[in-house]
Design a protein around this nucleic acid. Sequence first.
DNA 1: GTTCATTTCGAAATCGTTTTCGTTAACTAA
DNA 2: TTAGTTAACGAAAACGATTTCGAAATGAAC
Lengths: 350, 350
Amino acid sequence: MKPVTLKEIAEQLNISVTTVSKALKDYPDISKKTKAMVKELAQTLNYKPNAFAVNLRTKESKTIGLIIPEIVHHFFSSVIKGIVAQAEKKGYLVIILQSNESYDLEKKQIQLLMSQRVDGILISLANGTAEYNHITDVLAQDKPLVMFDKIAKIVKCSKVIIDDRKAAYTATQHLIDTGCKRIAHFRGALLPQNSIDRFLGYKKALLDNNMPYDPSLVYICECGDNSFEEGKMNARQLLKDHNNVDGIFINTDLVAIGAITEFNEQGVKIPEDISIVGFSNWFMSSVISPSLTTIDQPGFEMGKAAFKQLYREMQQVKKKEPIVYKEIVLETGLIKRQSTKEVLHKMKQI
Amino acid sequence: MKPVTLKEIAEQLNISVTTVSKALKDYPDISKKTKAMVKELAQTLNYKPNAFAVNLRTKESKTIGLIIPEIVHHFFSSVIKGIVAQAEKKGYLVIILQSNESYDLEKKQIQLLMSQRVDGILISLANGTAEYNHITDVLAQDKPLVMFDKIAKIVKCSKVIIDDRKAAYTATQHLIDTGCKRIAHFRGALLPQNSIDRFLGYKKALLDNNMPYDPSLVYICECGDNSFEEGKMNARQLLKDHNNVDGIFINTDLVAIGAITEFNEQGVKIPEDISIVGFSNWFMSSVISPSLTTIDQPGFEMGKAAFKQLYREMQQVKKKEPIVYKEIVLETGLIKRQSTKEVLHKMKQI
DNA sequence: GTTCATTTCGAAATCGTTTTCGTTAACTAA
DNA sequence: TTAGTTAACGAAAACGATTTCGAAATGAAC
């Protein structure tokens, strides 16, 4: 009933616990006969080392912590999948915590993971997080920690991100290339780095193309929950405020889908009247009508890369080497669909 | 740098480790003065008990394992969220493993969780699982385990499910109530219990309404991955095979959305020509055009209920009581949207 | 002053492994 | 024979916390 221990194996074989332990781990000072004997009995008794005891001695838990703002989210669940898959390959278990975009919760969860003695932490910051002592505390203890997606540039640690600015630039450029003259931007919440960078990319694309940047065309959402409703609201507001906008670059696909729905309901034609580019390439973006041109954000790959970097750092700690931080930038791509027009080749050539 | 231990606190205070431990846990045989002293120092030193040491003694890990077939899935990620939220309330951590619908992997992961000495296991079975020794082994060791969603009826343990049969019956009945005369069914893979039950509900609804059951109207997919493509394929095939089908009950929303897309492309009008009911109530079902009538499958609640039952069992084990298994059936609802017609009240009254 | 109860603390065992450092016995070389 | 190797095993000390069982000190009761 109760799990088998080394002691029980030792007693049955009339040898010491030490010998059993060494035999199972193929120490050179144990005879082949004894090893065979021990291994066989361990096998038949279905012996599994008690992870606690091992961890207590070795100070390795073979476990990492993962904190994300929101689990029910296509992008984040892809990231989880990437992390879990990669971790399993290396024999690591993943403990998942959800911060619900709350700084307080995030802080508590970090504490929890530390007291659990996880070997490393993977985190995507909550929108509410503007102070980073809870993070730097971890780093100060030489505990590997890597941020992904929602990061804080100011904190010195490894990061896995996409180039939001560049991607946003690409998205906006595409609107320009397809003939849009007056381009709005739904930027979501004010604070998160992604939101800022995407906004900057949008702005830069405008200026590089000698188009005026008009702040009244940038829609910020105090709530900042990147919801379907947010998209509808913003779209409704935009129609009230302006009548000559012909393109929108939207922070997130879900918001974009909200906007599309609103435009559809109000009889605004996409892309004839207004072109739209989203961000993330959620599955449903290909399914909605009209399908949504968007930026592909590789969640699975990000999860993989984040774990790989964390693993590297964990190895460094093991070897008592100094941790070397890396910033990994993943490639994104523009996925052209029906919500934007064809590129005007002639225009570009002229 | 290194985490603080009881011993260090004891040394600084010139008292024994025992006293420190007791003081922190409010044992009655420690004076108030000492308690205050200890607690204060522990606070300033930011002492966190070493989870391994505690677990080794108490034989409780305050950790549960969760095995799911697929993380990137709206329903399952909702379940995860429900579990994680509830577990956190009770001070439990969740280790997530993904079986990728593979029996072999699932088996290994169970072993892994057992050697990690998790206090309990939550599992949704892989499609590939047809043998249950790995599960009954766990149960035999009096380790709490509860199945959810994809369960095996044959295994004696707690289960949290919805009444697939009843829900499918409701869905089919709704098609009938809205005037459909010839109703097809896309059932997905052959094996999973859900698939079977939904099929049976569909069939029973037909027979109860004196409508003929025609096996050629039931589309099985060998691949059984419940994909968008599967929906398109089935829809295409259906149009070839039959010209008088006016309603379809589809196993999963994603497949239904595939079908809708195909019908849209081929100019088949929904719901005028064909009415469709899906299953799951994924977010995108409300967003697609026409929006999809579907069965609401409460993922978050299922996760909550599953953890609650597991918690109950873990408490029973703690108190050395026998584990009492429960089968919890969650309510589902029919969400009426545009993919089905209005109910024909007159028809029903006659 | 003796006995008994109460308060407050600590020594030590324990959980299951790992690892260091001996110890024995057998064997080799001279 | 003796010294020096080598092979094979075990005792014991960790790891950090919990808990049992005493022990000392104090106070109360007579």
